[in-house]
């Protein structure tokens, strides 16, 4: 039983198209879970259901087995960080952070203490009397985080909190978020469409597509074993080859070529997928299996390697190969698809 449970959530803005369709999600206490998916797949919508801005058309949202589906936002006590930060422009950093505590009518000294501690924890010392417009992007981000955390929320919800920052700051901030999250042990849901960002900080990742969760697993598991074609494509598998099962661990392509696959699944006809980095270009053909012959069509330079688009008997295949051997377009080459790198979807 999860700490947070979404049960069969359906959301439709116009009562015609379902934006979320029977979405289910279980999150354990203290976990950092990411919602990952392409633009428009419903990540923000899911987060807004949890936050209480949207009442789902169907389904339930439970926190510690308590049904909160119809509890209004201001009674939930969840911490929210918005993409635009949404700081209060007319209040200083201190008053922004103190806002939630003042509403709870806490004692003045207690507020002062808690806000000071949070300002310190979020590395904002000395900025208390500044206004939001006098801060840098990274500082605003931390104020938003401090403001959300100081109320000791039951859940922390972050909607693409890093997307307005430059690349270097993003990496620093995500480590910072992870550090604070672990220190406070706060259950966190993090929305992003950046795969690397998501994998680097999450305990678990829910990959979303068109309003449903396609796979919900640890980052390592998703990276190594995507379950569906959509997930595979989203995390960088570019080659999809239709195969039929011959026997366990052995599949056959349309041209009769045999492929050994370490990770077998229960299917009769399916697709083999493999990352461009995992395909090897070989010169001597000393075994007959897991081999694809083809002709280089296009070569592009990626910096640390070259990328080749290769026309094979089983369709177009993208391969990344180191700079040691350079192949010209029009050249015939042989590709080896290692049995331990092939994923069936």
């Amino acid at each position: 039983m999860g700490y947070i449970r979404l049960k069969d959530i359906r959301v439709s803005y116009d009562n015609k198209n379902n934006i979320l369709e029977g979405l289910n999600l279980d999150i354990q206490k203290g976990e950092l879970v990411s919602l990952l998916g392409p633009s428009g797949c419903g990540k923000t919508t899911t987060l807004r259901v949890i936050a209480g801005f949207i009442e789902p058309n169907d389904g339930q949202f439970l926190l510690e087995d308590e049904d909160l589906t119809h509890v209004p936002v201001h009674k939930r006590n969840f911490g929210l960080v918005f993409q635009s930060y949404a700081l209060f422009p007319h209040l200083t950093v201190f008053d922004n952070v103190a806002f939630g505590l003042k509403l709870k009518k806490l004692d003045k000294n207690v507020i002062q203490e808690k806000v000071d501690a949070m300002i310190k924890a979020c590395d904002l010392e000395g900025l208390g009397q500044r206004f939001p417009k006098e801060l840098s992007g990274g500082q605003r981000q931390r104020v938003a985080l401090a403001r959300a955390l100081v109320i000791e929320p039951k859940i922390l919800l972050l909607d693409e909190p890093l997307s307005n920052l430059d690349a270097k700051l993003r990496i620093n901030m995500r480590i910072e978020i992870k550090r604070i999250q672990k220190k406070l042990g706060i259950t966190t849901i993090f929305v992003t469409h950046d795969q690397e960002e998501c994998f680097s900080i999450s305990d678990k990742v829910a990959v979303m597509n068109k309003g449903v969760i396609e796979q919900y697993d640890t980052p390592e598991e998703i990276y190594a074993h995507p379950k569906t074609e959509f997930v595979a494509r989203f995390i960088g598998f570019e080659n999809f080859i239709p195969l039929k099962k011959k026997e366990n661990h052995v599949y056959v392509g349309e041209n009769g070529a045999l492929f050994h696959v370490d990770n077998d699944v229960d299917c009769q006809s399916c697709q083999a997928t493999i990352r461009p980095d995992d395909i090897l270009v070989i010169t001597s053909v000393d075994n007959k299996e897991n081999i694809l012959k083809g002709t280089v069509e296009v070569r592009t330079f990626l910096g640390k390697s070259y990328q080749y688009e290769v026309a094979t008997e089983l369709g177009r295949v993208v391969v990344n190969s180191s700079n040691e051997h350079i192949y010209e377009s029009g050249q015939d080459i042989v590709l080896l698809l290692p049995a331990n790198k092939i994923i069936l979807v």
Binding site: F53, V73, F78, Q83, A86, G100, L103, K104
Partner: peptide
């Protein structure tokens, strides 16, 4: 979203 932030912090 500024208003929504206020709601999330406990404002009706």
């Amino acid at each position: 979203s500024i208003e929504e932030a206020a709601w999330s912090l406990g404002c009706n």
